[in-house]
């Protein structure tokens, strides 16, 4: 703050606020409705809250949570790698690369994930043997498909390939949000395309890529419940359904699964919040005023603030999210 010579701050205005009785009435109505809903949930014996509480900590359920997390993060990791490759291929000069990338995105976005998972499950029926060798020529190694592509890998691959199509569009939007001047400056310095992508463009595209990717991760958490199509039977939804059917109490076990999904989503949302704050901050900040250096006692501004402040990426590129 700059101290003016006169120094005196004026006495702020004191005025009565506009009366808003409607606010109080609407708040009261909504609160009564909420109380009714909570009451209807808690006091209804059909929900069997005691059973819910019992199975919330069941070994099979917790193990299901573990498998769900493995599927979520495993498939997202693989999908991110594929998506970057697809996005780069989509921008390639080579028409074959562009075409393959376009086709991949078209196919995996255009067919239901459930159908895709069924086909991954049927892979060992459709192709009982897999082999490595010269294309259309001699084979060097052969495997039984069932031994290589187990139910778990079929589920993971199915989820990852489907997700890669969505993420590829997000990555593409991120890459094209970076000012083309950045690529030109790097080119003029004699940098090659691969280095320009890795060292100059991708780091700046992250600001646009990360928030929707967090969103996709939360979406993926719930999508893993579809892997019973493979069938993969260890994840949360299948595990709780199995218990529910065995003890003839499907409803409490559905609630168990829902509560776990909510819990994990909440944790992911907290993570996403911090990630977005990190990558989205500093649209106007980051400029240190009085010419004081980063070592002049001031907090070193986050790198990401400065990328944002430089305005080399667009604020709101059109992004496609969630199926």
């Amino acid at each position: 703050m700059v101290d003016r010579p006169s120094g005196q701050l004026p006495e702020p205005l004191h005025a009565r606020p506009v009366p808003r009785p409607g606010r109080w009435v609407s708040a009261a109505v909504v609160l009564v409705l909420v109380a009714m809903a909570v009451n209807a949930l808690v006091t209804n014996p059909n929900f069997r809250w005691d059973t819910v509480w019992l199975y919330l900590r069941d070994v099979v359920v917790v193990r299901g949570v573990g498998w769900t997390l493995v599927l979520t993060f495993g498939s997202m990791a693989l999908a991110i790698v594929l998506a970057v490759m697809l996005a780069v291929m989509r921008r390639s000069d080579n028409p074959v690369m562009r075409g393959v990338s376009w086709f991949w995105i078209w196919f995996f976005r255009g067919t239901p994930i459930y159908t895709q998972l069924v086909f991954w499950g049927l892979l060992s029926v459709l192709y009982p043997r897999l082999s490595l060798g010269v294309p259309f020529g001699p084979e060097f190694w052969t495997f039984t498909t069932q031994d290589v592509i187990t139910a778990f890998w079929a589920a993971l691959l199915g989820l990852a390939l489907n997700e890669s199509a969505y993420l590829a569009e997000i990555v593409r939007a991120g890459l094209s949000s970076v000012d083309p001047g950045q690529t030109e400056a790097a080119k003029a310095l004699g940098m090659k395309d691969g280095k320009i992508l890795r060292r100059i463009v991708l780091p700046q595209a992250m600001r646009v890529i990360v928030p929707p990717t967090g969103n996709e991760t939360i979406s993926m958490l719930k999508t893993t419940s579809l892997v019973l199509a493979v069938p993969f039977t260890l994840e949360l939804t299948y595990a709780t359904n199995a218990i529910g059917n065995r003890i003839f109490q499907p409803i409490p076990l559905l609630i168990v699964a829902a509560l776990w999904y909510l819990l994990i989503t909440s944790v992911l949302m907290i993570g996403q919040h911090y990630l977005e704050r990190y990558y989205g901050r500093g649209f106007d900040g980051g400029r240190t005023g009085g010419g004081r250096g980063p070592r002049g006692g001031r907090r070193k501004p986050r790198k990401q603030d400065l990328i944002g402040a430089s305005g080399t990426t667009k604020d709101d590129p059109f992004l496609e999210v969630t199926p």
Binding site: G181, A185, L189, G190, K192, D193, I200, Q204, L306
Partner: peptide
């Protein structure tokens, strides 16, 4: 080849109207 062109460019410095410094 683009690699050779990159090498040719590396011997020519260029300064842009809008600076194009790497913000990160």
């Amino acid at each position: 080849h683009p690699k050779v062109i990159a090498k040719q460019r590396s011997r020519i410095g260029m300064v842009f109207q809008r600076f194009h410094l790497f913000p990160h």
